[in-house]
């Protein structure tokens, strides 16, 4: 369960403030919508522990993320979360397969065995990238890169998937199949999904919708 209570956050550069009070149940699929610059990504980064609120509490499954130090927050991210970033953010010199396997390499508690590699290949196959698995991602298209990003978020079977507009750079067909995959895997593992999107046509597929407007979460 995700619990954000009495959150206040402002960037050092100023000009933007986010206030939030939000609760998302375990296994729930929540869509976060709002105009650009409203604070959606900031909200996602607060949940992930990438950003720390100036005030208030962020808790995931009873663990107060906002009270943890950087190391503990990073560990929590690696062990329980799968992240899909808005800017895709892959490691350019790694192959698609190696990017997918990256969280397993970074997390010492995870084993990078044959089964994990097979799982990476299976994920890539499900998003239509089996032939590109060995290719360096700098040579892939935006859509292909985003699909690799989705596979990377799911490789560790996370209990919480945080996705920042994962279908924004995909064509309709690929976006649908990528979202299908995301939804399917989230359901398979009973994971919680928080996904930012602009696409209102996707909202019926979510259990609930969170609105963010001018830094206010409702």
């Amino acid at each position: 369960m995700i619990e954000l209570s009495d959150i206040a956050f402002a960037y050092d550069t100023g000009g933007f403030e986010l206030t939030a009070a939000l609760s998302i149940a375990k296994g729930e699929k929540a869509a976060v919508i709002g105009p650009s610059g409203s604070g959606k990504t900031t909200l996602l980064h607060l949940i992930a522990g990438i950003l720390v609120p100036a005030r208030g509490k962020v808790a995931i499954d009873g663990q107060t993320v906002s009270a943890m130090n950087d190391k503990a927050r990073r560990r929590l991210r690696l062990s329980t979360m799968g992240l899909v970033f808005q800017g895709i953010e892959l490691v350019d010199y790694l192959s698609a397969r190696d990017n997918v396997l990256l969280p397993c390499r970074l997390n010492r508690s995870l084993r990078l065995d044959r089964k994990t590699r097979e799982r990476a290949d299976a994920l890539l196959e499900r998003v239509g990238l089996s032939e590109a698995a060995g290719r360096v991602v700098s040579g892939l298209s935006q859509g292909e890169r985003q699909r690799v990003g989705i596979c990377r978020a799911l490789i560790t079977k996370p209990t919480l998937v945080l996705a920042d507009e994962p279908t924004a750079s995909l064509d309709n067909d690929t976006a649908t199949s990528a979202l299908d995959l995301l939804m399917q895997l989230v359901e398979e593992h009973g994971a919680t999904l928080v996904m930012l999107t602009h696409d209102k046509s996707l909202l019926p597929r979510f259990d609930r919708v969170v609105h963010v407007e001018k830094g206010v979460v409702s």
Binding site: A48, K71, E89, V91, D92, L106
Partner: peptide, 16 residues
């Protein structure tokens, strides 16, 4: 720098 930020977001320490 972008790669460093990505790795950090994924859960990587600065020391790595």
């Amino acid at each position: 720098e972008a790669e460093r930020r990505t790795l950090h977001k994924l859960g990587c320490g600065r020391w790595l």
